[in-house]
Amino acid sequence: MGVLVVIPARYASTRYPGKPLVELRGATGVSKSLIQRSWEAAMDVAGVDRVVVATDDYRIKHAAEAFGGEVVMTSQDCQNGTERCAEALDTLGGAYDVVVNLQGDAPLTPAWFIEDLVAGLSADPVAEVATPVLRCDGYALNGLLEDRRHGRVGGTTAVFGADHNALFFSKEVIPFTGKTYADNDETPVFHHVGVYAYRPSALAAYPRWASGPLEHLEGLEQLRFLERGAHMLCVEVEARGRQFWELNNPEDVPKIEAMLAQMKQP
Score class of each variant (00 low, 15 high):
Ile35Trp: 01
Asp49Ser: 12
Lys32Asp: 04
Pro107Trp: 06
Ala9Leu: 00
Arg50Gly: 06
Val22Leu: 12
Glu221His: 08
Pro250Cys: 15
Asp147Met: 11
His216Ala: 05
Gly155Phe: 13
Cys136Ser: 14
Asn101Gln: 15
Leu217Glu: 14
Leu34Ser: 03
Val153Ser: 10
Ser211Asp: 07
Glu87His: 14
Ala130Leu: 11
Glu65Gln: 15
Ser122Val: 05
Ser13Glu: 07
Glu40Gly: 03
Val129Asn: 12
Ala54Ser: 15
Phe168Leu: 13
Cys85Gln: 10
Met73Thr: 06
Met232Tyr: 00
Arg152Asn: 09
Trp112Asn: 12
Ala64His: 00
Pro266Gly: 04
Tyr198Leu: 05
Val45Lys: 11
Tyr206Gly: 02
Gln243Lys: 08
Val118Ala: 14
Leu220Gln: 02
Phe169Met: 15
Thr55Lys: 07
Gly120Glu: 09
Leu4Lys: 08
Arg152Pro: 01
Tyr181Gln: 02
Ala66Leu: 07
Gln222Val: 13
Gln79Pro: 00
Tyr181Trp: 11
Leu89Thr: 07
Ala123Trp: 10
Val52Tyr: 02
Met43Lys: 09
Leu247Gln: 03
Ala46Asn: 14
Asn248Thr: 07
Ala119Gln: 12
Ala158Cys: 14
Ala66Ser: 15
Ser122Thr: 10
Gln76Ala: 15
Pro107Ser: 13
Asp44Arg: 15
Pro266Met: 05
Gly93Pro: 02
Gly219Arg: 08
Arg135Asp: 12
Pro17Val: 04
Arg25Asp: 11
Ala239Pro: 07
Gln76Phe: 04
Tyr198His: 14
Pro110Val: 08
Ala64Asn: 00
Lys32His: 12
Gly138Leu: 06
Ile7Pro: 03
Leu34Glu: 01
Glu172Phe: 11
Gly154Met: 08
His62Thr: 06
Leu89Glu: 12
Pro107Gly: 06
Pro175Met: 08
Thr55Glu: 03
Glu70Phe: 13
Leu144Trp: 04
Ser170Val: 05
Arg25Asn: 11
Val237Cys: 15
Gln262Thr: 10
Val153Arg: 08
Ser13Lys: 02
Asn184Cys: 07
Gly18Ser: 02
Val98Lys: 06
Asp97Leu: 04
Phe67Asp: 00
Pro175Lys: 11
Pro213Met: 01
Gly194Ile: 10
Gly26Lys: 09
Asp183Met: 03
Cys78Lys: 11
Glu172Arg: 11
Asp49Ile: 09
Lys179Trp: 05
Val153His: 12
Arg228Ile: 01
Gly138His: 07
Phe190Arg: 00
Glu251Arg: 13
Ala64Lys: 00
Val126Gln: 11
Arg208Met: 03
Leu203Asp: 03
Ser13Leu: 07
Val118Glu: 11
Pro8Leu: 09
Leu141Asp: 11
Val253Asp: 06
Ala119Asp: 13
Ala106Val: 06
